[in-house]
Simulated assay, not measured.
Amino acid sequence: MAAYKARLEQFKDALSKSELDIKKIRELSFQGCPFESGYRSICWKILLEHLPLKRDEWPKHLQRQRATYKQFINELIIIPGEKAYLGALADGKLEDHPLNPNPDSQWSVQFKDNDMLMQIDKDCRRLCPDLSFFQSATKFPCNEIIHAKSNVETLRKRVEHTVLKSETVGRNRLGITNMQSTRRRTSDEYALLPDGQEAHWEVVERILFIYAKLNPGLNYVQGMNEILGPIYYTFASDPDPECKEYAEADSFFCFTNLMAEIRDHFIKTLDDSDCGIGYSMTRLMEEIHIRDPCLSHRMTEQDLKPQYFAFRWITLMLSQEFPLPDVLRIWDSLFADKNRFDFLITVCCSMLILLRNEILSNDFPSNMKLLQNFPYTTVEVIKVISKAVEMLHR
């Protein structure tokens, strides 16, 4: 208890400086941020470069960023939604109509957006299904959209009015069916909240939709919801009322900054480039070969390719391999890494080495099951991080 209080004082002291020492904040965050105090939210915003290092710049900076995000909602959701509503009322009297072949037609854009939105919606509805948080109502919904007099449909209702009542099952490039690991619930059916309320997953859906609209070269790729989810959860669960109120806008900018650094892992055409996921997986296997040649040989002998397990580990920053509280602890260290996620490769290497005895004795099917469903109940996250830190200092 005394040690915990001492750490709280260290965070308090470091974050109260008029000009923050980023090296000190990295050092403290790397060891884990105390969540109950709200320091994790502040540290993540600093480490993800959403907050400047000068504290007196915070109020104006946040006011400007949050106003910008509100404008994004207006321009990308509210105004197009109102145009679609007016177009539907006109019922063909306007030049623009649902069968208009012009690719710049508002209807054409709407249909294209809906295709993307259906995938975002499907992924967000089942975000962290083991937690009730994302299915519960936020106290800070977007009133401009959910207000009873609004002519704009929520994104959820747009999907419900668009989607065909069918289900397609397939495996994406992350190697998981419909973005669900085997420990996730198979059902994505949840009781919907009444009109006038928004679930937290709907807020995440809106952030991802806006991000995709602003980044047409990347658009939305399955798995982005797993990157955004822990960020939004951290801000929306913070004890500070202001942090909760503006969790949506702040999450958007932190997510955008994070994606700027890891987006190449989501671009399939870059898989085999020096900045793609293929290169990162190669780095992992090379590190295993250096640190544990016997383990490396066994994995090569059984043809345990990193595409089978490390693709997901690295691309989703281990968000599917551990429960959310453990993911938050891992991300404290990842965000604090001054080399920007080199530590992620070391953590993945640590996970493999901690499983070396099982891998050396198991047959191929057993090892595949083991690596695709990391046994976090027996190999706790603190062991994984401690082993990774130990490896760094060798």
Rank of each mutant, 00 (worst) to 15 (best):
E19D: 13
S18V: 13
Q222N: 12
D272M: 14
D56H: 15
D274L: 15
L270K: 15
R125P: 02
W313M: 04
K112P: 08
I262W: 00
D123K: 04
K157W: 06
L164N: 06
H50L: 10
D188R: 12
D264S: 13
G92F: 03
L131N: 12
D274H: 14
Y211A: 08
K24D: 11
N373D: 07
S37K: 06
Q222M: 07
A2D: 13
L20P: 11
M391F: 06
R40D: 01
W107L: 04
S37T: 14
E261Q: 14
N143E: 10
R340D: 08
V379I: 15
G276N: 11
L214K: 11
T282V: 06
C348Q: 04
V204L: 12
L270M: 15
R156A: 06
K157T: 09
K268E: 15
V204F: 05
V327H: 07
L324W: 08
I227K: 04
N357C: 12
D238M: 02
H393V: 09
R26D: 10
E49Q: 14
A88C: 06
L344Q: 00
L355P: 03
H97P: 05
A310G: 08
N102R: 14
Q222K: 12
K93V: 13
K93R: 12
R263C: 05
E286T: 02
K45S: 13
R173V: 05
I210H: 06
N219S: 12
P293A: 05
D113Q: 12
S350V: 01
Q10G: 09
C243R: 03
S105Y: 04
C124T: 07
I267S: 07
L131S: 09
V221S: 05
S136P: 07
L360Y: 01
L318Y: 00
D326Y: 03
A67C: 07
L8F: 13
S386K: 14
R329D: 03
F252S: 02
P129V: 06
M285D: 01
P375Y: 08
P325I: 04
P141W: 00
L94S: 11
I79Y: 12
S187T: 13
S361V: 04
S319N: 10
L94Y: 09
E27T: 10
N219V: 03
M368F: 06
P98S: 13
R291V: 00
G32P: 04
R173S: 09
L192F: 06
D91K: 09
S108E: 05
Y220S: 04
Q135S: 15
F140D: 01
E160C: 10
N257I: 07
P52T: 09
M391I: 07
I290S: 07
K268S: 15
L354W: 02
Y279W: 14
L47F: 10
F255H: 05
R183W: 11
V221P: 02
I290N: 07
N257C: 09
L99H: 13
V389T: 13
L228G: 01
S296Q: 03
Q119C: 01
H289F: 00
